[in-house]
Design a protein around this nucleic acid. Structure first.
Lengths: 187, 187
DNA sequence: GTCTATATACCGATAGAC
DNA sequence: GTCTATCGGTATATAGAC
């Protein structure tokens, strides 16, 4: 692995665990076993490296979601399968945590990958819920746009609760709760 | 207002907007118009001040929630009234954001007010959902423990989505979505 | 491409005068 | 109680040798 690749990987790990304001270039260099010169040769600085790192991370997460959402199962089943994906609740979401970082939200280039990931995800779920509604899997009066937002929000909030209580069961409870509400009509 | 009070108030504002790792003692002192000596006279340091500030903030938020949840209306109506409270979606939640801060989660004294607030809130909603279930307002097979977690998570995730997209409508969509799911049986 | 040296600013805290 | 001075350390970046 090249120095550049290790720097990117280390940035992804540290941004995930400590956020943007909590991650220093020196910490990234140490984690990657690279010197300052190497980092500033390959990247414009902390910000440039973070933009690349975030872009990679969101692309990975999108691929992972697509693997679950693009199946041949009925639409609602695919949505629920996505809700039920295994998540490291105590670690938090690598993308969601960036949305609460003050220096990320106020910087369009840094925020773009975050925004694009969530826009894509809610839209993807939206279309699946449309399909589920057409085939009678969910109630006709539900607004897929609102429900898809609620689903993504529940996952993100599940991370918040799990970390606040230092107990991953807060995440599973949240997911179980929203799943039960979503499948209520099938009781 | 005393210097001490202004320092506390400034800490609350800055912790809300920039989190713990993103807030420096110097920034608090400037915002409060107080010198270093004043701050270190009244508080043990950044950490001690933050613990007091967070405790005050969570108490305020709890009082605000209680004002809505402790009414004479039917249980489910009170829960929905809480979901529908006005929120500054783009600013984020003063408590929830702390749960994603690496230096807060790993420090029990700092995390305690955060944990206690969410424990209290989910428990309070849990009891209201129990009551709603006994009176037939929500389906008998729902697990109030899970649903209450999902409700709180949806609010917290609504903040994440709104900030990621820099659009407060992501919050209202999430709330509308979860509300529709919760009241599904009344259609 | 990578290294060390250096620069300027800020971090969080302490010292001691008033 | 508040102020200014100061401290050792780190944040982020640049310079220039190799």
């Amino acid at each position: 692995m090249t120095n550049r690749d290790r720097l990117l990987g280390s940035a992804r790990v540290l941004l995930w665990d400590r956020g943007y304001v909590g991650t220093s270039p020196a910490a990234i260099q140490q984690h990657a076993n690279a010197g300052q010169g190497s980092m500033y040769h390959h990247f414009e600085g902390k910000r440039g490296l973070a933009i690349e790192a975030l872009t990679e991370t969101t692309q990975d997460m999108r691929r992972r979601a697509e693997a679950t959402l693009d199946s041949s199962a009925p639409a609602l089943d695919r949505v629920i399968a996505y809700l039920r994906l295994e998540r490291d609740a105590l670690r938090g979401c690598a993308v969601g945590r960036m949305a609460l970082d003050p220096d990320v939200v106020t910087d369009d280039a840094l925020r773009r990958p975050v925004e694009e990931f969530f826009s894509w995800l809610t839209d993807r779920l939206h279309r699946l819920l449309d399909e589920a509604q057409r085939s009678g899997q969910i109630a006709p009066h539900l607004v897929p746009d609102d429900v898809s937002a609620a689903l993504v929000a529940t996952i993100q909030g599940g991370y918040v609760l799990a970390r606040a209580q230092q107990d991953p069961r807060a995440m599973t409870a949240s997911i179980d709760g929203i799943t039960a509400l979503l499948t209520l009509q099938e009781r």
